[in-house]
Design a protein around this nucleic acid. Structure first.
Length: 555
RNA sequence: UGGCCCAUUGUGUAAUGGUAGCACAGCAGAUUUUGGUUCUGUUAGUCAGGGUUCGAAUCCUUGUGGGCCAACCA
């Protein structure tokens, strides 16, 4: 009968959702368990946020769960500081892991399994040097050659791995290798290394181990132990999948399966942990949480909300093609969220003194203005009006271009929620610099009860000079001047020297002095701002998250 | 030059053999006491050639272009 296409038509699934949906439908799995597996060697960034939203989102969508599992198999790079920040960032994003686990929890099990493979002749200890191993590995176009240690007997290998484990050999002396296929066109199958020797202190297992598993011999096994049904990773791991499957098949353990998606790149930014670490270490930024950083902590300090980041992750989608996302999409997401929820406040970044010559000296009055026109339930507040005011220097031009409809000599403008003023006189110093402007106000033009009959196009924000409070405002611009700095030989060549502008002498309305760290506001007509922890009661500090969308361009 | 993955408006992402849609960006207009928001309209796309089919973005094939793989990193 009726074939209403819109009714009941579910929104289209991404390719991972399709796979899971089919697995569930066909009974391949009965429930969904995913995992987010960060290595604790740096702070999480917006790219990880996509992975987090994906892994947790997939599980949520199909009634499953998600573990956080630290991939802590390399003690030389990993630190507790990172472990802590990762969990905090995940929670801030709005996700709670079903379990918090560590690959190092499974070191004993992995070791037992390694011995099992050895005894079945599927792994061997190799005393070749790293260079020798690399040389025998061949190239993508030429097959590799067998190591001289490839045919050591299982008994001998069992004894050797034990000696490796108890610390008889120095770092790099030998490795344990899986015996797969030295002629495989897939380099990862040419007898991959399972264990290497590192006499290093591990953040969790201490000095218990001096052999540590490689990624390929830890990740899939950890997935399997936990019963992960869908192990989601990025595209560059696709060539590892045959090995991932080989180990699971040889051991005949829970068959976790790996699926790959394309990580995303953001234009004008870098997403490599290594490069981000370099920015921090070489002090191109103030730290991992510098508001210019694409880290979760940087975005948080910048004023981004978890909602906006989750929305962004949803909007960029999931697929397998290389992509370069425009930063404007992220900005759209934060504007859309903040427009609905942030309270409006008046702030003047670069003050220009205005003397209202026909307003009595010493008099003041309090005018009502809305806290957020998008959310009337947030009510109104009072702002002080008096004879001496500040407006934005940008809102006055002595010689305005044609379409300029702010203030200029002889022109009129409305002070938002207050009166219309006319600029009568421009006061300059001996050098010709603008000092202040003298205006007259129209008493009948009071906001809400305007009987003046005047129509002005321009509306500007303003502050009572007597009541305004000084503040520092930090304006951020993109950190890189090139769209894809990561593609350059040296990404640091395109660092934007003007990515941070500090305005020491901004003015804000008194209510802003009580802002707590992280509080977000819209400074009317300017953009969204967030209180920075560097601020004090005497001098609050605000970070500009993003400007308001600007459609007027000065010519 | 071995293997694997990928190719849809400027950027992303849908369409699963049957009208190429959505979002961002852009442009134009309406509304507006934020040049914001909101609303309306609009520009613009199936990498190329061949094949299968009544019909191909979709299937096959050959190219082309891009990405990944030769760490005791993950």
């Amino acid at each position: 009968m009726s074939t209403d296409k819109t009714e009941g038509s579910s929104e289209s699934l991404n390719f991972l959702e399709e796979i899971i949906e089919a697995d569930l439908r066909e009974g391949k799995v009965t429930s969904v368990l995913t995992r987010f597996p960060p290595e604790p060697n740096g702070y999480l960034h917006i790219g990880h946020a996509k992975s987090i939203a994906l892994n947790f989102g997939l599980a949520q969508k199909f009634g499953g769960k998600t573990n956080l599992r630290y991939d802590d198999t390399n003690p030389t790079k990993e630190e507790q500081e990172y472990v802590d920040s990762i969990l905090a960032d995940i929670r801030w994003l709005g996700f709670e892991p079903a379990k918090v686990l560590y690959a190092s929890d499974y070191f004993d099990q992995m070791y037992d399994w390694a011995k099992e493979l050895i005894s079945r002749g599927l792994a061997y200890v190799d005393f070749s040097t790293a260079e020798e191993i690399a040389a025998l590995k061949g190239t993508p176009t030429e097959p590799g050659k067998d190591s001289p240690y490839r045919n050591t007997s299982p008994e001998e290998n069992l004894a050797l791995i034990e000696r490796m484990k108890v610390g008889e050999f120095p770092d790099g002396h030998c490795v344990l290798r899986a015996k797969v296929d030295m002629a495989s066109p897939n380099m990862h199958l040419r007898d991959p290394i399972m264990y290497r020797i590192k006499h290093d202190h591990h953040h969790r297992t201490g000095d218990k181990w001096c052999i540590y598993p490689m990624y390929d011999w830890a990740h899939g096994q950890s997935d399997s132990i936990e019963g992960i049904t869908h192990s989601i990773c990025t595209l560059e791991f696709a060539p590892h999948r045959p090995l991932y499957e080989w180990f699971i098949e040889q051991l005949d353990i829970f068959p976790s399966r790996q699926f790959e998606f394309a990580r995303f790149n953001l234009n004008y930014t870098i997403m490599s942990k290594r490069k981000l670490l370099q920015l921090v270490q070489e002090k191109h930024v103030r730290g991992w949480d510098d508001p210019r950083m694409p880290t979760i902590s940087g975005l948080r300090r910048r004023g981004y909300t978890p909602e906006a980041i989750r929305d962004f992750a949803r909007r960029i989608g999931v697929a397998k093609r290389e992509n370069l996302i425009e930063i404007s999409l992220l900005e759209f997401c934060i504007r859309e969220d903040l427009n609905k929820v942030s309270l409006r406040r008046f702030a003047v970044l670069r003050p220009l003194k205005v003397v209202v010559t026909n307003y009595p000296e010493g008099q003041e009055e309090w005018l009502e203005t809305e806290n957020n026109p998008e959310a009337p339930e947030t009510g109104t507040r009072k702002v002080a009006f008096c004879r001496e005011l500040y407006i934005e220097q940008d809102d006055f031009m002595e010689n305005p271009p044609p379409k300029y409809f702010r203030l200029s000599p002889g022109g009129m403008v409305r002070l938002k929620s207050a009166f219309i003023i006319r600029c009568d006189e421009v006061i300059k110093d001996a050098q010709g610099n603008l000092v202040e402007i003298h205006c007259s106000y129209v008493p009948e033009s009071r906001s809400g009860q305007d009987t003046s009959g005047l129509k002005v196009k321009g509306v500007v924000h303003w502050l009572s000079a007597r009541h305004a409070h000084p503040a520092e405002v930090r304006l951020y611009d993109r950190l890189f001047q090139l769209e894809d700095p990561g593609a350059e030989d040296d990404f640091k060549n395109s660092i934007n020297p003007n990515s941070l502008e500090i305005i020491e002498n901004a003015m804000v309305e008194p209510a802003l002095v009580e802002a707590n760290d992280g509080d977000r506001f819209q400074f009317t007509r300017l953009g969204y701002f967030c209180a920075d922890p560097d601020g004090t009661a005497e001098k609050p500090v605000f970070n500009r998250t993003v400007t308001l969308k600007e459609t007027w361009v000065k010519k």
